[in-house]
């Protein structure tokens, strides 16, 4: 940890820091480092061979493609929902607002079996599409729907506080200068909420890529068609192929860190623009 120096006179630095660092190390850092340690026995060529396996590459593509699509749909509807929830008064607004958190509260496995049933050939929604010959459950469309489900609160909750804080004077000024409602939205409001929407997009994206419970049922685990990266890790583990499972995990961790890093950069820029948060 190096030398940690406390400035100030508030007591409790040693104990709170001690608890924080030791618990963090025991529960998160040491297990995580084991993933990297486990790679020692592997040469780079072996690692490369594992991670460029055809089945694996197709799993990345499905994971990334569906997540990106779901996060984009969430970005649009998330901004729309944040907008109507902060700007309009209508009956049922509070109830609608309360429902946004459902994906956080509902266990992912329950969401998974509910979505699978709902969008299967016999489900309420799935049967409507089945008549037109469109299958949703056990196809990439189903995976995307499950990812939309788990990702929507991230965008809404990122954008909502920013929308609440926008000074009405800016909009009034735009209106007085002759801008129409839609022009005001795209030229005044959208630039303000864009960083927040991007943060929400990133969070939803990251969550979708790693998501397992709500996606595994509706995906159906068909190689090259609906097999996503987390499901592939589980099936490699079930075959006791630890090297492959660890390699896939490593790729996913790297991607998550790049995404997290990007998000922090955006956040830093938002803070800098609004003149320091503290």
């Amino acid at each position: 940890m190096g030398r940690v120096k406390a400035k100030g006179i508030i007591p409790g630095f040693g104990i709170s820091m001690g608890i924080t660092v030791s618990m963090l190390s025991l529960i998160v850092l040491i297990p995580l480092i084991s993933v990297f340690l486990n790679m020692r026995g592997m040469t780079f060529a072996e690692f490369w061979h594992v991670i460029t396996d055809k089945q694996l590459v197709s799993a990345y593509k499905i994971s990334l493609g569906c997540s990106a699509l779901a996060a984009s749909i969430n970005a649009v509807f998330g901004v729309l929902l944040a907008w109507i929830l902060t700007r309009y008064q209508f009956p049922g607004r509070r109830l609608l607002d309360g429902f946004i958190e459902l994906p956080f509260a509902l266990p992912t496995a329950v969401a998974g079996i509910a979505l699978t049933t709902l969008y299967s050939d016999k489900g309420w929604v799935g049967s409507l599409f089945a008549r037109a010959g469109i299958k949703i459950s056990y196809t990439p469309a189903g995976i995307t729907i499950a990812m939309i489900f788990i990702g929507i609160p991230f965008v809404v909750r990122s954008v909502q506080p920013v929308l609440e804080k926008i000074d009405p004077k800016c909009e009034e000024a735009a209106a007085m200068l002759g801008a129409g409602k839609s022009r005001t939205f795209f030229k005044v409001i959208l630039p303000e909420i864009f960083p927040a929407a991007l943060t929400g997009f990133g969070l939803a994206f990251a969550r979708s890529i790693g998501e397992y419970g709500s996606v595994v049922f509706i995906a159906g685990n068909i190689p090259y068609k609906t097999q996503i990266a987390p499901v592939l890790i589980v099936s490699k583990l079930e075959q006791f192929n630890y090297a492959a499972a660890t390699s896939i995990a490593l790729i996913m961790i790297l991607f998550a860190f790049i995404l997290l890093f990007g998000l922090n950069l955006i956040q830093a820029r938002i803070v800098a623009r609004s003149g320091g948060g503290e």
């Binding site: 850092l29 790693g210 589980v234 922090n264």
Partner: peptide
């Protein structure tokens, strides 16, 4: 940032780390 790691890691990988330990 380190505290936030579990947020950005797939739950499957979380399980995997404990198997590797």
């Amino acid at each position: 940032t380190l505290i936030d790691i579990p947020f950005s890691i797939s739950p499957v990988i979380a399980g995997l780390t404990f198997i590797l330990v």
